[in-house]
Nucleic acid binder design. Structure first.
Lengths: 245, 245
DNA sequence: ACGAATTTGTGCGTATGTATT
DNA sequence: TAATACATACGCACAAATTCG
């Protein structure tokens, strides 16, 4: 099928393109054939198939699980995450997705290191609550966030979040009526192994990284957030329409 | 060196980590040893070294050129690119870098397709100027942008940009005194082969993708821009400090 | 509960092609 | 032209995780 012309293009690349097409038109739906079968079908070595699969894996089209097989990632249209002074996860996605939800993955206490103490305006070594939260919409994991709060100022933040599933609500219970986003720094990189598991993505998936600082109404830093978005499921939207200069 | 304990971690991963360390502490500087030599040094097959190198390549630490060798990418600290209503490349970087410059890579005319005509508020099929520009600071390529302008409204934009090297100046000559950014959509993905060449990065490098729309003072769309940033050289900064709500 | 079959992950050795020096 | 260096591809073997009878 792919062996007639000496096209000058690597076989793994042609196979990758062919698999992409097969996924797009539904020939490959839920689960991809085993590597060994694809190798036989294309008349190539299994390594060559694996090279092709790794491309689709990195692009988020496929997810490979050792011992189980290779599966097609459900591809929803990319959701928009607006970044404004009032950036909140649940409000942001309430209109685009059906069931946004935040779940606590992990919570512990750490000491503020240099960058963190600078961001939060506390002394180095100050005790912090660290929350790791997973955000899901329509059953699809969209982002994982690591938040840092002053343990002195918000002693009960962990329990409050665990109950409410919302940072905004948890902060209200801790006496912070409102807050806003001061800045967001956006970069991109490869996913970490633990995040890959949470997202159900392969180890070469790409994430959007947003590092942000929220402040209270007196402009004092409340939390430092490090959010990882699955790059093929989300985009960040910055609207600068009304700003004068 | 790496073969004593059966650490349960793949050899290519350990080699990748070791190479990273060697790059960080300057043991490997300008150019990396040939794959065959690394293989011999680590006592592994060349394939195993290549697997390790591909990781560093994807992270932008190395750049591999066929027939020539593997080279260490100069790693400047990541520059910040503020996104505001007045986003302009040269102003943005003037304070952080020494010699920002824009160069025209390619210019041609295309017909507006669906998304483009919607973004620019013109009829589908309308003639557009398409400019591809490369932006460099301190000799390091930071971004490649593809801009679309109405060919009817800005007939001489290409020549004007070629002369001035600045979109802002070129628009002034074409009768558009000022403009501002309406929105920016940020996502991430793998680099394209042609961009990889412009950036001097490997084929698995990661880019930040910013798709933006600029409008004139009457809020009419002027240009649609698709900027690709080398993710390991730039971060985007969104400041939402003053916004009321 | 347990072993066999399946499936992916890692690694070696070899060979050949292609670009650069 | 020859030597060097990276790119692709095959085949083999075994490890590790999962599935299934």
């Amino acid at each position: 099928m792919l062996d007639e012309p000496d096209s000058g293009i690597a076989r793994w690349r042609r196979i990758a393109d062919d698999l992409k097409r097969a996924i797009a038109d539904g020939t490959i739906r839920d689960r991809a054939p085993a590597e060994s079968e694809l190798a036989e079908r294309y008349g190539v070595n299994r390594h060559t198939v694996r090279r092709a699969l790794s491309v689709l894996n990195a692009e988020g089209l496929l997810r490979t699980e050792r011992g189980k097989g290779t599966f097609v990632n459900p591809q929803a249209p990319r959701l928009s995450y607006p970044i404004t002074a009032r950036t909140r996860f649940s409000e942001n996605l309430a209109r685009q997705a059906r069931s946004p939800a935040g779940r606590l993955i992990r919570a512990d206490r750490v000491a503020a290191d240099g960058p963190l103490s600078a961001a939060l305006g506390c002394r180095p070594g100050a005790p912090l609550h660290r929350l790791e939260t997973l955000h899901v919409a329509d059953g699809v994991p969209l982002s994982v966030a690591t938040c840092h709060f002053s343990a002195e100022r918000f002693p009960g933040i962990v329990a409050a979040y665990a109950e409410t599933g919302s940072i905004t609500e948890a902060l209200k219970r801790e006496g912070c009526a409102d807050y806003r986003r001061r800045e967001t720094r956006i970069s991109a990189g490869r996913i970490s192994p633990s995040d890959a598991e949470h997202f159900g993505l392969g180890p070469d998936a790409i994430i959007l990284l947003a590092v942000a600082i929220d402040v209270d109404l007196e402009n004092r830093p409340i939390q430092a957030i490090r959010t990882r978005f699955a790059a093929d499921r989300m985009e960040l939207l910055v609207e600068t329409g009304s700003e004068p200069s």
